[in-house]
């Protein structure tokens, strides 16, 4: 569904539903609600940490990522793709 960036809130899955183990440059994430394991690497952990459970719009998220993680030179299209992937896994939900 093509919904406008400024109306849709993105939220991280509930913190207590995740078990995260840092392996090396990758982290293993067990998502208790789905029973699925995900192996994630930058910038996915940063996206999760920034979103939190309160949620924010995509535009706000991209602004915050650029500021907090010095991702200012990052390609916004790539960040959007990573965010869509996280939505597909269920680790991030749209509301």
């Amino acid at each position: 569904m093509a919904l406008a960036d400024d109306t849709v809130l993105y939220r991280m899955a509930r913190a207590e539903s995740l078990s995260i183990v840092h392996l090396d440059s990758f982290s293993a994430v067990y998502h208790r609600a789905s029973g699925i394991t995900h192996l994630i690497t930058a910038p996915a952990p940063e996206i999760l940490a920034t979103l939190g459970e309160a949620g924010m719009t995509r535009a706000a998220l991209l602004d915050r990522l650029a500021r907090d993680y010095a991702l200012g030179d990052a390609d916004m299209d790539v960040l959007r793709e990573r965010l869509d992937e996280l939505v597909a896994t269920g680790l991030v939900s749209r509301a």
Partner: peptide, 16 residues
């Protein structure tokens, strides 16, 4: 029990 988690998640995925 694990099957229950997976089944409910599948329902949630369909709902989304």
């Amino acid at each position: 029990e694990q099957g229950r988690v997976v089944a409910l998640w599948e329902a949630e995925a369909a709902r989304r």
